[in-house]
């Protein structure tokens, strides 16, 4: 799985950081940053849930 984030779209809800803190973080303005663009299988469920919950459609998953 490859994860992409679209920072201009992010509205800093923080939900992805709560769900998958090993994969997502926030910069000084609260905007999403990626800690791991190619997370291991143990994170896949949380990452998928983050993409589904993101209010701004700022998280994109490319399943390999």
């Amino acid at each position: 799985m490859r994860v992409e984030v679209d920072q201009p779209k992010c509205v800093a809800s923080g939900q992805c950081v709560l769900l998958a803190p090993a994969v997502f973080d926030q910069d000084d303005d609260g905007i999403v940053t990626l800690l791991d663009a190619d997370p291991g299988p143990e994170h896949h469920a949380d990452v998928r849930e983050s993409a589904a919950i993101c209010p701004a459609a700022a998280i994109r998953l490319v399943e390999k």
Binding site: A12, G14, D28, D29
Partner: peptide
């Protein structure tokens, strides 16, 4: 965006 910073997790 001017006020998102303090609400970061």
């Amino acid at each position: 965006r001017m006020v998102t910073a303090p609400f970061a997790i």
